[in-house]
Design a protein around this nucleic acid. Structure first.
Lengths: 161, 161
DNA sequence: CTACATTGCGCAATCG
DNA sequence: TCGATTGCGCAATGTA
């Protein structure tokens, strides 16, 4: 899950034994045949079309698509390309998503830290308030000189609650 | 991405025209042959092994692996299954990751909201302090006792930084 | 070496 | 008509 080194020259196989399902000469490759469902030989109606080009799927698809056709080969190649591209993008996206997760996690931690900090600050201030209130209540005459004020300023640090 | 309904009975194809590359009868399917790199016919040395089982890749792989072999077919089937499983898990994982992103995004918003709230609270308290300090200062008692306490307590103020 | 897991790739069906 | 997606099978390779 993170190793990816493979380099092949498209269309060529390292072994020579490629996966290429080209079998252009394998006349009968349809399982239907094997199943005994023979029906149509390799007769191609040329294509009832205006342009003498080549019409792959015009009416009867399920028959055979002449694999020998240049048309066919070309379309296959184009599709293979598209597939490759699509898959690359797909993987890229997955990767990006994963990274997004990491980023969000980081940011989350940062935010939580900040919250912690703010909470502490708040807590300190509140304590200060309470203390002050007590002082006022306890004696009308604050620490004229009795080193009182100092305490009040005892902010954070121990901040204990 | 979000549509996914397809049900097939494994091993069977809706069209009957399957992708199944079974061509058990396509004797020559090796591109090497087409390339003129012929070398070994379809002679299977049976397997120079003790157990008369069936040794798929024992020494000469690049030759042909008789597709007719039951061995082969069985292994293929098992692999196909494994592949399917692996891919399912892969997709599942991707989906989970995506969801994780959403969850994290939500939490992030929550945290930010909280931060905003805390900040506001802090700000209010600080203002209160300042006000109080002013009162003390403006008022009558500046001497020994008064004077500083208020200001002094004004610690970091914005604290940021 | 065997069994399963991953991965790149090509094919065909289908979608847009 | 044509590129983009998707499910599927094959074979090479990785891993246990």
């Amino acid at each position: 899950m993170s190793k990816q080194l493979q380099q092949k020259i498209p269309n060529t196989d390292p072994n020579g034994v490629s996966v290429i399902q080209n079998h252009p000469h394998c006349s009968s490759l349809n399982p239907a045949v094997a199943a005994g469902l023979q029906q149509i030989p390799q007769l191609v109606p040329v294509s009832p079309r205006s342009g003498g080009k080549a019409t792959p799927p015009s009416k009867m698809k399920k028959t055979m698509m002449d694999k020998d056709s240049d048309e066919y080969r070309q379309r296959r190649e184009r599709n293979n390309l598209a597939v490759k591209k699509s898959r690359m993008r797909s993987k890229q996206k997955a990767q990006d998503t994963q990274q997004r997760v990491n980023e969000l996690k980081e940011e989350n931690e940062r935010l939580e830290a900040k919250i912690k900090l703010l909470s502490k600050e708040l807590s300190v201030l509140k304590d200060l308030f309470l203390e002050h209130a007590h002082n006022l209540a306890d004696n009308v005459q604050p620490p004229a000189s009795g080193g009182g004020p100092g305490d009040i300023c005892n902010n954070g640090a121990n901040g204990s609650h």
